[in-house]
Simulated scan of single mutants.
Amino acid sequence: MTKKAIIAIPMGDPAGIGPEITVKALAKKEVFQAGKPFVIGDTAILNKAIALTGVNLKVNEVSSLEEAKYEFGTVDVISLNNVNTDSFSFGEIQAQCGQAAFEYIKEAVTLANEGKADVIATTPINKESLKAANVPHIGHTEMLADMTNTPDPLTMFQVRNMRIFFLTRHLSLKDAIAAMTKERVHDYLKRCDEALQRLGVTTRKFAVAGLNPHSGENGLFGREEVDEIAPGIELAVKDGIDAVGPVPADSVFHQALQGKYDAVLSLYHDQGHIAAKMTDFEKTVSITNGLPFLRTSVDHGTAFDIAGKGIASSVSMEECIKMAAEYAPHFTK
């Protein structure tokens, strides 16, 4: 019998929907059947989330994972007690919440680095709250990169059978296009192939999305495909990577869903985000590759407009935890 993965869940920004979707997800039996989840957060906020959502859960506050029960009906939590509930409000940007979210992630990384947690499944954090707390990172990926000395982590989305990697992430379109060099395409295809190997994926046929309409029509609508993208793919093929392209972006993601490709390399942030979220917004899961440990994440924000109302869907969180458990046995340091 395969050993269940121990899954660390940092609670996210306390003022967002992270606490609510966490307790909702942990109220599903199939989540505990998949793995052994525990939360890093704040007991008082989790109890508020349980009351708001009406789920049948009890909080088991522990000081170490040896005290965790990992039992359905119980939420094991390492509580950092770092939220002042007297001044706390759901749905608002608060420095204390940005700081708290940062500390939850830092504790999760520590546990993963020590081998006590097998994988981290993250909930939403808020960029403005982080800024208010003077946290020197814009998001999860940047935090994790800094905490683990990983220079350039790979982001991968998975929805259904489609996997999407990103050549560039948080750049303006102008800067992203400037970064689409043949050297970068070559390097990323090699790293994407290594990432899928580490996740236990045995067939790894890549398609690289095109940038311009119809992939530029051999330079008629732009030279990027001709001058940089196609040469980068050719270099990767010479290294033994099974890659094709550039394939027009208006068809490549559909073809991947049909099983023609095992993964698509998206050239910029929204190109891949739109494709994944239009396929199934709630079941899109983000995976960060290249870290010393596996990290999965929901692919939505803190949703301050509905936070504290108990109505947020936990489907993405459930998928995030289950995918963490699925890939964990293949992921070795």
Rank of each mutant, 00 (worst) to 15 (best):
Q258F: 10
C192R: 01
M278P: 12
P153G: 04
K24Y: 00
L26P: 02
A312L: 09
I40H: 01
N218G: 11
N56H: 12
E183F: 10
Y188F: 15
I93T: 06
R204A: 04
A312V: 06
E217C: 03
A179Q: 15
L57Y: 02
C97R: 04
G245N: 06
L167T: 06
K48D: 12
I93Q: 09
T141L: 00
F331Y: 12
A243T: 07
K24T: 01
F38H: 02
K28R: 14
I120H: 08
A34L: 00
A145M: 09
F157S: 04
N134V: 15
E319M: 13
A34M: 00
G18N: 10
Y188K: 14
G210Q: 03
K4S: 07
R223C: 15
T74F: 09
I233M: 04
Y188I: 12
D262S: 06
M162Q: 02
K29C: 10
A108M: 08
F102I: 14
R198K: 15
F165V: 04
E282L: 13
N289S: 14
E128I: 15
V252G: 07
L130N: 04
D118P: 09
N84R: 12
T122I: 01
P10M: 01
K205P: 11
A145Y: 10
F72Q: 03
D262P: 05
H269P: 06
E61L: 08
V77T: 13
T332H: 13
P10V: 07
I17Q: 10
L26F: 06
A328N: 04
A15R: 11
K24D: 03
A178R: 12
V252H: 08
V77M: 14
A263R: 01
N161G: 11
M323V: 13
P329E: 05
A176S: 02
H214D: 07
F253Y: 13
R198I: 14
D118T: 08
L235Y: 12
I311S: 10
E67S: 09
D76V: 03
I120G: 03
E319L: 11
T122R: 04
A49G: 11
I50F: 03
M323Q: 15
F72R: 00
F165G: 00
G16A: 09
M278D: 11
M323I: 14
T296S: 06
A324N: 02
E183S: 12
G200V: 08
H170N: 06
N126A: 05
T123E: 14
I321P: 03
